[in-house]
Design a protein around this nucleic acid. Structure first.
Lengths: 192, 192
DNA sequence: ACCCGATCCTAGCAGCGCTAGACAATCGAG
DNA sequence: CTCGATTGTCTAGCGCTGCTAGGATCGGGT
């Protein structure tokens, strides 16, 4: 029995290695550089091994996305819990969100830009994604204002942050004024 | 001399054909389906002909993006000019923007999600892109509010719309509540 | 009528995601 | 301890991608 357990542990370890390697490679050289061949070479196995863990490249992206979602949830909660008062909490949340997107662009892409084969806004959405949204909701629900559904407010605020994150990184927006845009967003959207 | 002119006309016509075909194919089957081979086959020329007009696939995407930007500017101005009062104008603008993104997803992707090799937020940004931003600015500058730079306000509002457009289309947001999210956005962001 | 330059196509390169089938290592039964 | 079955891994290859070198062909100018 322990032989089987050891094998399963090794398998799980290798799966983590695949995800971590894919993430690192994507973060360093972009997702285009994450090819099954390169990935296989880095983990020192042949290509088909990847397909014994994941159905394809899509699912690897999805795995990175889930890992990222869990980390983002932690980062957001850490930022909000360190701030006093609803307004400062929202500002801290927004900064933490954009900071995460800026410092983990490949992970952010895996979560929200690429197709990782994950379900969103469903009952069968994976737990880490629901939890990341919950982290947003916990903070933003406080400032939705009267007569506005907290989830709807959260979605809208999130969309605004997502727009800032993606347009800035795609050089569609000059990065210098990000702080002022965030300030404007918080000032106008949050009811305190 | 007229021979040369005829040839140039024919060349220009073929270039338009390439762009239109790429756009149609992308709109119908997604950008992944727009391969140089398929594109060449549809215009009834061989692949290398594409490269005598554009440096590569990237530039073809860029050409579609420019065409789309011009159309979007027209659509936005048409929507705003049909509305009375700043508030209704902003609502109309937001709806027109999201409508354009929804009905021309491939063109929208070419403009804002894919790399078409175009410069943004620069002095050497192509004219159609600057003009599309100008169309936003004309309407949104009115409602920036005191002490807020119109361009900064426009960028922020635009980012929010972009976030809604992309997250909705990527199924990250349920599409039913789009209208309410827009209403919330206009209510809170625009100063009337 | 001929030549020469412009124009276009055939063929091919390296790399992609993914998989069939061969091969080796390991396990359980006799 | 040996043998067959199972499991795990690799080599090789398919059809596709974006892109390009080099040869053929066509048409205008002399």
């Amino acid at each position: 029995m322990s032989v089987q357990e050891r094998k399963e542990r090794e398998r799980a370890g290798r799966e983590r290695l695949i995800v971590a390697t894919a993430r690192e490679l994507a973060e360093r050289q972009g997702w285009d550089a994450v090819t099954t061949r390169r990935l296989a070479e880095r983990i020192e196995y042949s290509q088909p091994v990847l397909y014994s863990h994941f159905r394809g490249k899509r699912e690897i992206i999805g795995a990175v996305a889930l890992e990222g979602a869990a980390e983002m949830a932690v980062a957001l909660r850490a930022a909000t819990s360190a701030a006093d008062g609803p307004r400062d909490r929202v500002t801290a949340l927004a900064r933490a969100y954009l900071g995460f997107a800026e410092h983990n662009p490949a992970v952010y892409d895996a979560m929200f830009r690429l197709d990782g084969g994950l379900a969103f806004a469903h009952e069968d959405t994976p737990e880490p994604l629901k939890d990341a949204f919950a982290a947003l909701l916990e903070c933003l629900g406080e400032v939705a204002g009267d007569g506005v559904h907290p989830a709807l407010f959260t979605e809208t605020f999130w969309a605004a942050l997502h727009g800032l994150a993606t347009l800035t990184r795609a050089r569609r927006l000059p990065p210098e004024d990000t702080a002022r845009r965030v300030e404007l967003l918080v000032d106008r959207l949050a009811v305190v």
